[in-house]
Simulated scan of single mutants.
Amino acid sequence: MAAPLQRKVPSLTLSEINQSRKNELLAWVKDTGVKLLQINGQRKYGGPPPDWFGSPPPSGTEVFIGKIPQDIYEDKLIPLFQSVGKLYEFRLMMTFSGLNRGFAYAKYLNRYSAQKAITVLNKYEIQMGCHIVVCRSTNKCELCIDGLAPSVKECHLLPMLQELTTGVLSISLHPSPFKRQRQLAEVKYISHQAAAIAKKALVEGTLCLCGDQIEIDWLKPNIKQELRSSSGQAIPKILSAGGSCRDSLNEELSEPADCHKLPMLGSMLDYLNLQCEKQQLGRPQFFTKCVQSNPEGWLQFWYHVVIPRYLSPFSGFVWIKPDDSGLEDNEKAKNVVALQLLGALGCPVV
């Protein structure tokens, strides 16, 4: 006996489902007035949001969101992550076809809200059978380019990467641990966002550097440690405000520097440049940004200094207090940092 014929029920394709989700997103944007900006493979809300006043949030306030269904958008995600704390920024990674890439980043006002998001929303069932992952975002700023030919030099690679990407701070070449007779480049960027955009541009673009099968990825901690061990490089030491050495690239000078007690403050930057020239280290490149102030009027500056021929860059934080010396706050911060670097380089300060 023949089996009875079954009537076929038409099913929606992924593109049809996605179009429905897009329509819901557009309706939500219209109703709420939320502004989304799409650039470089990501769609961003905030950074800062419209009602934001003051400096950006400190480090440790961003969370990574993974395993997002590809047809889920900001109309579902932003309200969900706003339910645990005030959002400073939300970034959803996008494909060219208009689907999300399965992950996003949410930055909060403070670390407490970020931790609450991890506690409350990790393994949250955002769609039937789909549980998202929420964890602390790691501020990765370094890429590795593996498979470079032995003939490639830093002086060749740097201008090429500066043309293809933005925010390059430093480059160092090492014998590749994975490819015989090849080199691996360690490339540091000014921020995680700059590094992420650079990684996307380099992976999706065509990078010709006289080498075959060039691979571009994040520089993982174990690879970085292996490169340091094989080259015998020691981690450079940064002087604290008290003058003691610390084995860290990200030390905060916790006590504000009293600028009036610093000798030759107005000339510290010039003096550092002179000493670096004498030691043939190259002219230091400074990146500074004011990140916060305290009730007493002190300003905290983040700094990152690259000395071209020194082993590694210097990063950290300094406090300065504005006064009537005539120097801009940014220049004053550079001079305070220059004084610390002079000590780290073993230069006499008179």
Rank of each mutant, 00 (worst) to 15 (best):
E74V: 05
D270Q: 10
Y310Q: 08
I235L: 14
Q70T: 13
R7M: 13
L327D: 11
C135M: 15
N18M: 06
R91S: 03
M268P: 01
L219F: 07
A149I: 11
K107W: 04
Q193N: 13
V318K: 01
F103N: 10
L77I: 11
P10I: 14
N110F: 05
I235K: 04
S176I: 07
Q38D: 04
Q70Y: 08
V350L: 09
D324Y: 00
A3R: 12
T95L: 06
L164R: 13
I190H: 05
L207T: 15
A194M: 04
A106W: 00
K278P: 00
Y45H: 08
K140Q: 10
K220E: 12
A185S: 07
D31F: 03
A234F: 07
I320W: 10
Y271T: 15
K224A: 13
E62Q: 06
K220A: 06
Y45I: 05
L265N: 04
M268W: 03
A185P: 10
Q275H: 11
D329Y: 09
C144I: 15
D324P: 02
I78G: 00
P295V: 07
K321L: 12
I145N: 04
C130K: 13
G147E: 14
I216R: 06
L339Q: 09
I197H: 02
R182P: 03
W52Q: 00
V34N: 02
V152C: 08
K153H: 14
S315F: 08
T61Q: 10
H192C: 04
K321H: 10
R21M: 12
I216Y: 07
G54H: 00
C130R: 10
P313F: 10
V133P: 01
K35V: 15
M94V: 07
P256A: 02
P256I: 01
V337Y: 08
R21K: 14
K22C: 05
W302H: 15
S229R: 06
E252L: 06
S11N: 09
I17Q: 13
R309G: 01
K332C: 13
L36Y: 02
V152F: 12
V291G: 06
D31K: 13
Y88E: 11
Q162G: 06
I118K: 09
L269Y: 02
Q285D: 11
C141H: 04
